[in-house]
């Protein structure tokens, strides 16, 4: 509903964003694609040339690759489940008439302000460290052996740290969404004889659909690229136990200095991200209307 000239103006005004984002996406992607078919090792700079799909083949044949793929999906899925479930529970709690709402909210959102390297190093050193961490001290207080979090449970530990970082975001979205639920609806349901659980199941949960969609969409965008937390804590180890796809690419590029293989991994990661994005948009994109 507008005139030809406003539509022209609209195209003109959206163009800068589209152009810069397209360049930002396509140029590095094209270069990565090019490198992925080349022999390009920083340690032997004079040996170059086309290698076809060798870099890709190396990736698919590497046992680490499938582990990294699993770990990546585990990380994204695990964090999503934890933050959505805990986020809803905490939001229900904060939505009650509670004293000191303002301060409570500040405390709950604080982790969001903590930059990932700091978050990771707090958890690694102050809490999970087997000698000096708080968890070890607590375990010793009970006369138990300290748990070696990062050594024995690297993936759960990383998932826990990342979930802590993203819990405030999920909680806040759910609290905001709950506030827009009319109390009359809940009272009507109560009059109709719905139990607390049924009120949650049939009134509150459907009301939160859009909020859950947003949490999943935004978190997935950020979680697929999680790197810093692993770099700071486990370095992908022990062995490759906590190596994700981004971390595996990083190891190829920086540790093995094989740019060709890293690039092939990058292309695989991009394809994976697109597959996830496709299913995400198809599965939940429709909830974003309205």
């Amino acid at each position: 509903m507008s005139t030809q000239s406003t539509r022209m103006a609209a195209r003109f005004m959206v163009a800068p964003s589209v152009i810069v984002l397209f360049i930002w996406m396509i140029v590095p992607l094209a270069m990565t694609a090019y490198f992925s078919f080349r022999l390009y090792r920083l340690l032997s700079p004079d040996r170059t040339g086309w290698v076809g799909f060798n870099n890709y083949v190396w990736f698919f044949n590497s046992p680490d690759f499938w582990l990294a793929l699993t770990n990546t999906l585990l990380l994204v899925g695990g964090v999503l489940v934890i933050t959505v479930v805990l986020g809803i529970l905490i939001a229900l709690l904060l939505d009650q008439p509670v004293k000191g709402q303002g301060v409570l909210r500040i405390l709950v959102i604080a982790p969001f302000f903590v930059m990932p390297p700091v978050a990771a190093s707090i958890w690694e050193n102050l809490f999970m460290h087997p000698q000096n961490g708080l968890f070890a001290a607590i375990a010793r207080g009970f006369g138990a052996q300290p748990i070696l979090f990062l050594e024995n449970y690297p993936m759960p530990s990383v998932i826990g740290i990342v979930a802590w970082e993203w819990l405030p975001f999920a909680t806040l979205i759910f609290v905001t969404a709950l506030q827009s639920l009319s109390s009359e609806q809940l009272e009507a349901a109560e009059m109709d004889g719905a139990s607390a659980f049924n009120r949650f199941r049939y009134i509150i949960l459907p009301h939160l659909t859009r909020a859950i969609t947003v949490v999943i969409l935004i978190q997935t965008i950020f979680l697929l690229g999680i790197f810093g937390e692993i770099f700071t804590t486990t370095q992908g180890g022990p062995g490759s136990a906590s190596t994700t796809l981004p971390y595996m690419i990083f190891k190829q590029a920086i540790v093995a200095k094989d740019i060709g293989r890293a690039a092939a991994g990058g292309i695989i990661a991009v394809i994976l991200a697109n597959i996830v994005a496709y299913f995400l948009m198809r599965g939940i994109g429709r909830h974003l209307d309205a």
Binding site: L29, M31, I221, G225, P246, I249, F250, A253, A273
Partner: peptide, 28 residues
Amino acid sequence: FVPGKRTKDLLMWMLSTKMMPAVAVMIP
């Protein structure tokens, strides 16, 4: 204010550029 048929797709495309893992394009 001047939405077209493809506005939603455009928005989703923009968001999807963020899904590209940074590490994948680090070298370029």
